[in-house]
Design a protein around this nucleic acid. Structure first.
Lengths: 348, 348
DNA sequence: GACGTCATTGTGAGCGCTAACAATTGATGG
DNA sequence: CCATCAATTGTTAGCGCTCACAATGACGTC
């Protein structure tokens, strides 16, 4: 317990001890030029001695800048959102901003609106919304807020600035890879209908098939969980031998469930059915078999999002609707080839 | 883009419009009694009309309360930290606090100290440190900070208030379960030496064996990743038939790697070797085979941590060193029994 | 030697809010 | 009918900082 309970020292206290004016202390702290070295030293010494720390509220009040950004997110224990959150915070900190987060269980108009109000109370200068559900995105555009908002993972069809991994492209990579491997058609296990990313992946899969002159089979639906993948996998197993040889699953966790269901049904992967996932979670490489999947670059998403938000805050970017798209990448592993690459060697 | 770029209205503006004093506006906002209903209505109406929001910096300056808590964490994309973070934020928000997070790549004295400084700049009233590495914990006790700090996941051997899942107990549950199932001894794949939780789990395993009169085999070491588990698993496979029939792995991700290595070596789980993990990540139920593991209640960890920190801040708890321990729970699945329970039915 | 120039430091006025106290009003009761 | 009190509202000071500007002093120039 090394913490002081007494009234903390103010700039004036430091100034008194150093024998200068409070303004000079402020200059030293603000790294202004035109402060004599000797004076600077005196001030720094006094600061050290008193253990002085600038009061952020007073500073924020005087400058009208809190240097705080907000993030609203849901499903933060999933790999994607967690990775994005991490990248976001790191990028913001590099720019000297503090990040306040609100993690929602469910993303609805009400919870989103409460979250924005909560962050507003916290004095954020802008907000990043990790709002993958369509409903939430629409709500975002409606809500009134006294700061700029950047949407991430909402798809590009929204009326607010946004940053997205190109889901459509990712789905094309996955589906195209399966077709190129010789499969006549590709089935699809989609994510929840309400998610824009799920819709984009499904659309990418569908258009790739159509362009190849193949009639897309009826897609199945899941809720991102391994359990829903397992259930869908049981259904898919029933179609083996009746045209099903390849499945594109909308995320890795569901793919895990699918793999297990197929295995239990005596269906071999990839010999009987090839499987591709989406996300490249750290576990994917160690599934049975290791999973071919689509990797999203969350670090870049984070950096670009913060960059865009700061541009908006500083007024560097006209507050029109900017959209940034980031390319995903196909990672090929054993679930689509009849051999098992060495773990640790394969991942790029 | 529904955001106002003009100078936002102040309390005085609202007061003018409502024909009252700014203090009356403050009273309405602060839910003070002794405000006539009619007046309150006028004020609320004016607030609504102008889209007024209280300036948090001014408020914080006047009250000397920022109502902001800080969290320092590392490895936030792992299931455990991510879950704890989520629970922490939810608990803090329920108490009306905003949470600012710093996610570190590596936890060292320097990064920790920078993180605390950064949060201090952000005006936090207290900090939760998710600091599982021993070195970091020691640093925490040394560092000077102007606010209370609660350590989470540090083990109880620290000189600062802390909240922990009882790792020792968790390891006893896992090891005891294997011994009770008839195994003569249990091997152990430990986490990184520097992590207190890894040490506690190893110690729990060791003492359980010793109390059963069994000489503990030499434990292996990993870095929590599936890859390190895979490598250790290859080594463990070499000991099958020479006394190895059961392994307690320090986390689920490494257990995943172990399962794969064993499978590749032609070793069957659980018939030849039983495996127990730790954490109960959502995927564990769908491993091949579904993994017996130890579940930690992160929600409770979050709630208790915030509770303790607020007690410290409000001075409700004497700033002595409080320690809170939370019990983990064994979840039995197919990796320790020769049958496969139905997914979706088994998990409690 | 008077003047301008630059570097350095100090002074005063807020930023927008809440806390403490003062003032006003209306109701109550002897 | 006036003292008394509670309910309601207003007034005045800061909270600790930064900004704009004023003041000071050292130096060089013509």
């Amino acid at each position: 317990m090394t913490h002081i309970q007494l009234r903390p020292p103010t700039m004036a206290d430091v100034a008194r001890l150093a024998g200068v004016s409070h303004q000079t202390v402020s200059r030293v702290l603000g790294d202004h030029p035109n402060v004599r070295d000797e004076t600077r030293a005196k001030v720094l010494h006094a600061i050290e001695e008193m253990g002085y720390r600038r009061n952020s509220s007073a500073r924020a009040l005087a400058t009208r800048r809190t240097r705080t950004l907000g993030v609203v997110a849901s499903n933060t224990t999933l790999y994607g959102p967690a990775s994005t959150l991490f990248a976001l915070e790191e990028a913001a900190r590099a720019e000297g901003y503090v990040v306040s987060t609100v993690s929602l269980r469910r993303l609805t108009v009400e919870t989103l609106s409460e979250a924005l109000a909560h962050l507003s109370e916290g004095g954020v200068e802008g907000v990043i919304a990790l709002a993958p559900q369509r409903s939430a995105v629409e709500a975002l555009a409606e809500l009134r807020h006294p700061f700029p908002v950047v949407a991430v993972g909402t798809g590009s069809g929204v009326e607010i600035p946004s940053v997205n991994v190109d889901q459509h492209l990712g789905a094309r990579l996955a589906t195209g890879h399966l077709l190129a491997s010789g499969h006549r058609t590709v089935w699809h296990l989609a994510g929840p209908e309400d998610w824009q990313e799920a819709a984009d992946r499904a659309e990418g899969w569908r258009s790739t098939l159509e362009e190849a002159g193949v009639e897309p089979p009826l897609p199945l639906g899941g809720d991102w969980s391994p359990l829903s993948g397992y259930r869908a996998g049981q259904e898919l197993a029933g179609w083996v031998g009746r045209g099903l040889t390849a499945v594109f699953v909308a995320n890795d966790q569901m793919a895990l469930g699918v793999l297990r269901a197929l295995r239990e049904a005596g269906v071999r992967t990839p010999q009987d059915v090839a499987v591709v996932g989406f996300d490249d979670i750290p576990e994917s490489e160690f599934f049975a078999p290791p999973l071919t999947t689509v990797r999203q670059d969350f670090a870049t998403v984070g950096k670009r999002s913060i960059g865009l938000l700061l541009d908006l805050i500083e007024g560097r970017t006209p507050s029109g609707t900017s959209r940034i798209a980031i390319e995903p990448q196909l990672v090929v592993r054993a679930s689509t080839f009849p051999y098992i690459p060495q773990p640790g060697a394969a991942p790029g």
